[in-house]
Design a protein around this nucleic acid. Structure first.
Lengths: 248, 248
DNA sequence: GGGATTCGTGACACTCAGTGCAGCGCGAGC
DNA sequence: GCTCGCGCTGCACTGAGTGTCACGAATCCC
C-alpha cells in the first residue's frame, strides 16, 4: 500500500484540501487565530463547502475518527461470543492505535495542537468518550446477568481506554519514534491481566507452557503470550522468546 | 419571599439570579432554544454581566464544579502519605457525590439536561476529565519509582471515575430516590478491591507491569506473563520484559 | 465635607462560528 | 435541446463571546 498515488476515484479531493489547508494554517499561526474564512480561502473553495464536509471547525482536526469509530463498532458487532470479552475490547482499542500509527507525523502534530487548545481537548474528549461507550456497551451486553454487570463493563472499558491512551500519548510525546504497538500491548496487557479471566469457552488462541507461538495467519492482532518464571535468567528468557517467535 | 432585606452578606445575588433564570428557561423551552439575552432579560441584568460571572453559556449549568474541583485538589494535597493511595482517591471521588447529593432535585434536572444536549454532555466530559486528571496526578506522585507508575495511576483514576459515575448516574436516573452513598460505596469498593492492597505501611515489594508476581515465596503465581505483538521488534520486547521483571 | 479613584455594571459595536436559502454551473437522461 | 438533479457558491441572518467606554456608587485621601 503505497499511500497516495494512483487512486482513480479519490472521491473528495476538496475534503483533503480543506484538511491540508487547515493544518497548514493551524501550525503556522495557531488554531484560534485561524478563521474558517482563512481556511477556505487557502483551499480555494467556498465558505459554505467547509461546513458541508465538517459540521464544525473542530471536526477538521479529527478527519478520520468517525470512520474509525464505525470500524470499532463493526468489529465489536462482528465478533460474536467466540473470544474472551476483555481481550475483545482490547483488540478493538488497538484499532484506534492503528489509525494513529498510520500517519505518525500527522498524529504528532495533531497531538501538539490538542494539547495547547482547550477547545480541541474538549472535542477530543467527546470523541474518546464515544469509543469508551462503544466498548462499554459491548461489555454490558456480554455481562448481562452477572452480579455487577454494568459496573464491571463501565470500569473495564474506562481502564482499557485509559491504558491505551497512556501508551499512545507517551508515544506521541516522543514524536512518534519507536513502535507504539509494543507500548500499547504492554499497557493493555496490564488491564487484561487485571480483569480478564484466563480462559473461557474456547480458549484464546496462543497459550503455551514456557513460550507460545501461534505461527500462521498474519492477523494484525496476532499476539504472543510468553510465560516464564520470574527468577529465570534473562538471557534464557530471551533465547526462548526468539525460538517462540521463530526468529533468531 | 420579600427578597430584599435580610441577607447581610449574600455576595453575589446576581449570580444566583442568573442560574435560576437560566434553569427556568432551559427547562421550559430547552437549552438551545434559550439565548443568553433571554436569560439576562429574565434575571434583570445586563448581557455583559452574564459573561462576567460565567465564561460561557455552558458554565451556568455547572455553577459549583469549579469549587468542587478545588476542594478535591485541596483534599488530595492535604492528605499526605498516611493513607493507602487507592483508598484516598476513592474518598476524593466521594466529594463529588456529596456535591450532587446536596441538591438532589437540581442534580436530577441537570442530568436530564446534559443527557439531551450534546454540547452540555461534551462540557461535562471536560469537567469529569479534570477530576480524573487530579486523581491521576495524585496517584502518579504516589507511584513514582514503581515499574509502571503512570500507567497504573491513569488506569486506576479512570476506574475510580467510571465506578463513581456508574453509581451516580444510576441514582440520578432514579430521580434521586434512595441513598446514593451506598451505591457509590459499593462501586468504589469494587475498584478498591481490584487495585487496592489491603493494608500498607511500606510500599508493596515487587509487582511487575504486564506480569503478576508477588515476589517472595514459591507462590504458584510467581511467573511472568508477557503479552506482545508478534511483529514487534525484538529489542522492544526485551526492553518490556526487563521492565516487567523490575530489572534493567 | 468635597474631589479623585476604583470597582461593578450596563450599553454599544465588533468578530466569528454556524445555518438557511436562493442561484448557478454541469453532467446525465428522455 | 431541454430538463432534472446535484454540488458548489454567495449572501444574509442568528447567536456566542469580547473589547471598550460611560455611568453610578462606594471608598479614600486631603
Amino acid at each position: 500500500m503505497s499511500s497516495s498515488s494512483a487512486a482513480p476515484a479519490a472521491k473528495p479531493p476538496i475534503r483533503d484540501a480543506l484538511v491540508a489547508a487547515a493544518f497548514r494554517l493551524f501550525l503556522e499561526r495557531g488554531y484560534e487565530q485561524t478563521t474558517v474564512d482563512d481556511i477556505v480561502a487557502l483551499a480555494g473553495v467556498g465558505r459554505r463547502s467547509f461546513f458541508r464536509y465538517f459540521p464544525s471547525k473542530e471536526d477538521v482536526v479529527f478527519p478520520d475518527h468517525e470512520r474509525c469509530l464505525a470500524d470499532m463498532t463493526a468489529f465489536l458487532a462482528a465478533g460474536g461470543a467466540e473470544h474472551e470479552p476483555v481481550r475483545r475490547v482490547c483488540d478493538a482499542a488497538r484499532l484506534v492505535l492503528r489509525m494513529y500509527a498510520e500517519n505518525p507525523a500527522f498524529s504528532v502534530q495533531r497531538y501538539r495542537l490538542t494539547r495547547r487548545v482547550p477547545g480541541l481537548r474538549a472535542y477530543e474528549l467527546s470523541v474518546v468518550w464515544r469509543y469508551e461507550r462503544a466498548l462499554a456497551e459491548y461489555l454490558r451486553a456480554r455481562f448481562t446477568g452477572r452480579p455487577d454487570g454494568t459496573l464491571r463493563a463501565d470500569v473495564i472499558a474506562a481502564a482499557v481506554v485509559a491504558a491505551h491512551n497512556n501508551a499512545l500519548r507517551s508515544w506521541l510525546r516522543s514524536d512518534g519514534k519507536g513502535d507504539p504497538g509494543a507500548a500499547v500491548d504492554h499497557a493493555l496487557g496490564y488491564v487484561q491481566q487485571t480483569y480478564g479471566r484466563p480462559a473461557e469457552g474456547p480458549p484464546a488462541p496462543a497459550r503455551a507452557g514456557s513460550a507460545a507461538a501461534g505461527a500462521q495467519a498474519g492477523r494484525p492482532d496476532d499476539v504472543v503470550v510468553l510465560v516464564s518464571r520470574r527468577d529465570a535468567p534473562l538471557w534464557r528468557v530471551v533465547q526462548e522468546l526468539e525460538t517462540a517467535l521463530g526468529r533468531g
